[in-house]
Simulated scan of single mutants.
Amino acid sequence: MEHNQKFKMYMENNGGKKIQWVVFAVFMAVFALFLIRFNQVDIASLVSTEGRTLERARVVEILKDNVQEDGNRVGQQNVVIEILTGSKKGQLAEATSNNGYLFGAVCRPGMGVIAIQSLSGDISLHTVYSFDREWAILGFLFVFLGVICLIGGKKGVLTCIGLIFTFVCIIWLYLPMIYKGYSPVLAAVVIAAVTTFVTMYLLGGWSGKTACAVMGTVSGVVVAGISAVLFGKAAHLTGYNIPEIESLLVLENIRGIQVGELLFSGLLISALGAVMDVAMAISSTVFEIHEQMPELDRKGLFCSGMNVGRDAMGTMVNTLILAYVGGGASTLLLTYAYQLPYLQIINSNNIVIEIMQGISGSMGVILTVPIVSLIASSLAVGRKSEVPAVSPSLTEQF
């Protein structure tokens, strides 16, 4: 009887998991069809590119170099390139390569480059745009994913799938939502909910702790957004105080994009990873403590979650602050070098935006701790005891 009971428990447990994965697969298929349909949108042309394309090319010869006697480069290089793609594939053409940090490249024979090809009738002009960096990027990307899979095993593979899904959501859901005129803040919250659900499900399956982590992550992201909006109102940041505002205003006039919310929306996306880590760590800890000590009441579980959250909170807040500081390192260096007065620094749009992002993102992480602790402790105590999983090796006894 005991063996039969264990076998029945094992089959029920695995049967439930199979149903969950089938439901998850159906959800992903429906979501994919939705993304395909949602991305059927006409993109307004901001700049005329008629007759101009970017093509892969290979440097064949240097006709005129721009290196000086002191080793510095001034002016342009004149080179011969072989076009590797497009309508002139296989043909040789003369091209210029500017001496610049943003565009151009220091060309050498055999080097792969990206060339801007401008065609007008029988006239063609070619300019070297940059090095061909595609293979370097793809190579390191595959190494990165390979290391994750190698170290993480099955969990590593699921982590990669979750990462790819997040990237797909940002490109094919977040950006189209904003482009179609939806609120950027709403788009960020939707992305947070969808990507958190899928990531958590892939790593831990659907359970009470996964549900708590998802609710806690969304709550933390919303808190970060509210904090940013309040900070912006107090500091008179409208979301239009950004370098790309002129180009964005053109989009606002053409497509009705809510440009003022983009600054706050980007903050939510930036804080998502840290909030997700804290939420899952606390949720998992509370449910594990409940499994080991079922006699512990809701208050005891809440206190345990808070104690764990305080440790995680310290490191995650540091992570966010340092990430924003690192992103603004150039601005900070120039501020230091020019010895700008305090009143100019504290009232600079760029500096205030960095401070707002750091404080608001950290607020989201900090308040995620009590939110998840409360949700997880309440759900863990209130739920029925789950049937313990039986090891597959038990089936060998039958």
Rank of each mutant, 00 (worst) to 15 (best):
M316I: 02
D277R: 09
S270Y: 07
S304Q: 12
G314Y: 03
F287W: 12
G328W: 06
L322T: 10
Q339N: 13
A274P: 06
F302S: 01
I289D: 05
V308D: 04
L340V: 04
Q292C: 06
D277T: 02
G309T: 03
E261R: 08
V275R: 06
E295F: 07
I289W: 13
R298A: 06
R298V: 10
V308F: 01
L333G: 09
M316V: 02
D297L: 05
Y336L: 08
M276G: 04
A274E: 09
D277K: 05
T319W: 12
P294I: 11
G305W: 00
T285M: 02
N307R: 13
G327E: 11
E261Y: 08
V325T: 15
Y324N: 11
E291N: 13
T335Y: 14
L267R: 00
L263C: 04
N307C: 07
V317D: 09
C303D: 06
R310N: 08
Y336R: 03
I269A: 01
E295R: 10
Q339R: 15
P294W: 09
M316S: 07
M313R: 01
V286K: 00
C303M: 12
M313G: 04
A279M: 04
I282K: 00
V278L: 06
R298I: 06
A279Y: 01
L268H: 12
G300S: 01
V317L: 10
M293Y: 14
P294M: 12
D297V: 07
Q292N: 10
P294A: 10
S283T: 00
M316N: 03
V317K: 13
S330T: 12
S283P: 03
G328T: 04
M276N: 15
S265V: 02
I282M: 00
Y338P: 07
A279H: 09
E291L: 15
A312W: 06
Y336G: 05
V308Y: 04
M306D: 02
M276S: 10
E261I: 03
Q339T: 06
M280Y: 03
D311A: 13
A281C: 09
F264L: 13
G326W: 14
S284F: 10
M313K: 04
S283D: 01
G305F: 00
Y338I: 07
Y336V: 07
V325P: 01
G327H: 11
D297E: 07
V317I: 15
F287I: 02
G314V: 04
G328E: 12
L322A: 11
D277V: 13
I321C: 09
L322M: 15
S304L: 00
A279G: 07
A281Q: 07
L268K: 13
F287D: 03
T285N: 14
A337N: 14
L296G: 03
G326I: 05
L340N: 10
Y324A: 09
E288N: 11
H290G: 00
C303R: 15
G305T: 00
Q292M: 14
F264C: 00
T331S: 15
M306Q: 01
L332H: 04
M276C: 05
A271C: 13
M306H: 07
H290T: 03
